[in-house]
């Protein structure tokens, strides 16, 4: 990849500026006491952004280190884990959901299985006590567990 990341960013930002400007032009106010209206400010911003991104296009900085391979998968893994956490947070209940998420995250950060499992249980229990006892936050209970027994 020889194109500097800043050039790509410049193009993206230029596109964003054009998009903002186009969207702002479509704003229509039938009547208002406000002489400036809702259009002008975003339009001004898009002009500023366009100027800055042109500068960036012509004078890009150094290209940084970009993640590749396994690391990209790991990064996506973290995002996916947090999304799944949100999905199961209420249905599974705080303790099991948190223990599982901490287990997966610890693994992603390179912990061996046993340590990850222990930290999952301990962080879940510890944070549960912290949130409910010390901070008075209500957390979803695991009703399905009581329903099983």
């Amino acid at each position: 990849m020889n194109i500097a990341a800043d050039r790509i960013l410049g193009i993206v930002l230029l596109g964003l500026a054009a998009f903002v400007a186009a969207q702002a032009m479509q704003l229509h106010v039938p009547f208002s006491y406000d002489p400036l209206g809702p259009k002008a400010f975003p339009l001004g911003l898009s002009v500023l952004l366009a100027v800055f991104s042109l500068v960036l296009l012509f004078r890009p900085g150094t290209n940084g280190d970009w993640p590749r391979g396994v690391l990209v998968l790991k990064l996506l893994g973290v995002l996916l884990t947090l999304l799944v956490y949100a999905l199961v947070f209420t249905s599974l209940g705080y303790l099991p959901a948190t223990a599982l998420v901490v287990l997966v995250l610890s693994r992603l950060f390179g912990a061996p299985w046993a340590k990850a499992a222990i930290s999952g249980v301990l962080v879940a229990l510890g944070s549960y006590l912290l949130f409910t006892q010390a901070m008075g936050i209500l957390l979803p209970a695991s009703d399905w567990l009581t329903a099983l027994t």
Partner: peptide
Amino acid sequence: IPRWLLVPAIAILAFV
């Protein structure tokens, strides 16, 4: 404190 212990704990704090 190793990262694998620290980061999940931070993630939980932020998320909750």
